[in-house]
Design a protein around this nucleic acid. Structure first.
Length: 473
DNA sequence: TGGGGTTAT
DNA sequence: ATAACCC
């Protein structure tokens, strides 16, 4: 087994920092009075959130599936796009979402694997989330390759242990944003530093158990943790201290880089003359609320100050299962039916393995249009008849035909089949998933699996050391 | 651009 | 059902 961290990691030498006992004694401090309280009941404790972002996830999964690809420049292809690639390929100029044509021009030796079937990535993705769930119940997924973990409670536990053991030493793991000096008399700094050690353990466990590398950002909320995690890029982590928050958000040169501000909002903000984050900070709230609505306006303006009180919401099992295919052209009812029949078996298999029953089905289409290529999706959904929902668990029953009938009815609600049409995408989605009526088994291991934290699974990179009991006597 | 996901309205 | 957001 290779050591963690693997070679790319350049160790940045941070000075050692000392956590001192409270003034007035070298002995163990009195037992904390707030022992049983939740963190939210303590006003002084800041949250500690880690954002974990796996490095070029699909490419990593493919390299695990076929280790011979490891030394080569590798791209993962969907249709005619290289959706992601490993670092060997990036060195040679291949970028995410580059066309296969451009990628091959940049890098003729590029090896391509087809990544249109997401099954291997989806499976690995949930392994990562479940592994993080062993440390702590508050794990929120964002896409297949990112997770937020609220480690506030773990940090509090370690802080109490440190305080009870008297003199202790604690040092940061990984980078500190802006090279900001740590003040160990500031309990917020101490909590975040402990957070950086836990983040290192999380990354270590992901590498040791799953063979995946990734970045982490540690900060006092989700938004900041996500922003800071990308500071040092492959396989490194960064801690953000509150005093450097302004520098971080002002480093965003364009507002669309703010997570939460997407394409539409960017357009509207630009019409108002808001180009960067500092513009947004200074912009009159009243005017912003008129343009975007009170809720969105207040949310994004708080984001511009680095404020984000949104909780890390455990994702649990998926809310929906979908399968889609895009193509150049589909223009007859028969073709549509064939495409749907292609999509269904895989989907039904996934749902069967999940164990829950869907009660809603949706068909989504994209119609060709030369202008505005990127937004014309429509969908129709309907409740599944109960007798069909029941059949999802079973193997032999043929539920495909009745499902195809339902989906074709949905299709005819969108498209007049007597007129010419030109589709470029079909997608089937099952949602409104319900647990079986009191079958003893849970849907997946997700809720059952949260037990005691793993003891030695992750390599502790720097142990929190007890330094002395005798020092002060 | 793909092949997925989520939440809010 | 759509629109917005995320990857």
């Amino acid at each position: 087994m290779e050591p963690f961290p693997p070679p790319e990691e350049e160790e940045e030498e941070e000075e050692e920092d000392w956590l001192r006992p409270q003034p007035g004694g070298g002995a163990a401090p009195p037992a904390p009075a707030d022992h049983g309280k939740s963190v939210s009941a303590r006003s002084t404790a800041c949250r500690v959130v880690v954002h974990i972002d796996l490095d070029c996830f699909y490419a990593q999964v493919e390299m695990i599936r076929n280790p011979e690809l490891r030394a080569k420049p590798l791209g993962v292809q969907q249709k005619y796009i290289v959706v992601t690639c490993n670092y060997e390929a990036r060195k040679r100029g291949v970028k995410k979402m580059m066309s296969v044509k451009d990628a091959k021009e940049k890098c003729p030796q590029l090896v391509l694997v087809n990544g249109e079937d997401l099954t291997p990535y989806r499976e690995m993705s949930y392994k990562v989330t479940e592994l993080l769930g062993e440390f702590c119940p508050l794990v929120e997924r964002l896409g297949f390759d990112e997770n937020f973990v609220d480690i506030t409670e773990i940090v509090e536990k370690r802080l109490n242990q440190l305080q009870q053991s008297g003199w202790s030493r604690v040092s940061v793991s990984g980078h500190v944003y802006n090279h900001q000096a740590i003040n160990l008399h500031d309990t917020t700094h101490v909590r975040l530093v402990i957070g950086s050690q836990i983040a290192e353990e999380l990354r270590g466990a992901i590498y040791a158990r799953l063979g995946l590398t990734g970045c982490a950002g540690v900060a006092s909320n989700k938004f900041l943790s996500k922003l800071v995690s990308g500071t040092f890029k492959p396989n490194q982590q960064t801690l953000l201290l509150p005093e450097s928050c302004q520098d971080l958000i002002c480093s965003l040169d364009h507002i669309q880089k703010v997570p939460g501000i997407g394409y539409k909002t960017t357009q509207r903000l630009e019409m108002l003359g808001v180009r960067n984050v500092c513009d947004l900070q200074a912009f009159p709230s009243e005017v912003l609320e008129k343009e975007l609505g009170v809720s969105a306006a207040q949310r994004i303006q708080k984001l511009s100050y680095g404020e984000d009180d949104s909780p890390v919401t455990p994702s649990g099992p998926p809310q929906s299962f979908s399968d889609e295919d895009s193509f150049k052209k589909c223009s007859s009812e028969v073709e549509v039916k064939e495409k749907i029949e292609e999509l269904l078996p895989n989907l039904l298999d996934r749902i069967r393995r999940d164990g829950r029953q869907p009660h809603t089905v949706r068909l989504t289409i994209r119609q060709f249009s030369s202008t505005d290529k990127w937004f014309n999706r429509e969908s129709r959904q309907c409740a599944l008849p109960p007798h069909l929902s029941q059949k999802f668990g079973k193997e032999s029953s043929n539920i495909i035909s009745p499902l195809v009938d339902i989906l074709m009815k949905l299709f005819r609600k969108m498209i007049d089949v007597d007129l010419p049409f030109h589709l470029t995408l079909l997608s089937v989605c099952f949602s409104n998933l319900k647990d079986l009526p009191s079958s003893k088994k849970g849907s997946i291991g997700f809720y059952l699996k949260q037990m005691s934290p793993p003891s030695g699974s992750g390599k502790r990179v720097r142990e929190v050391e007890d330094v002395s009991q005798g020092e002060g006597s």
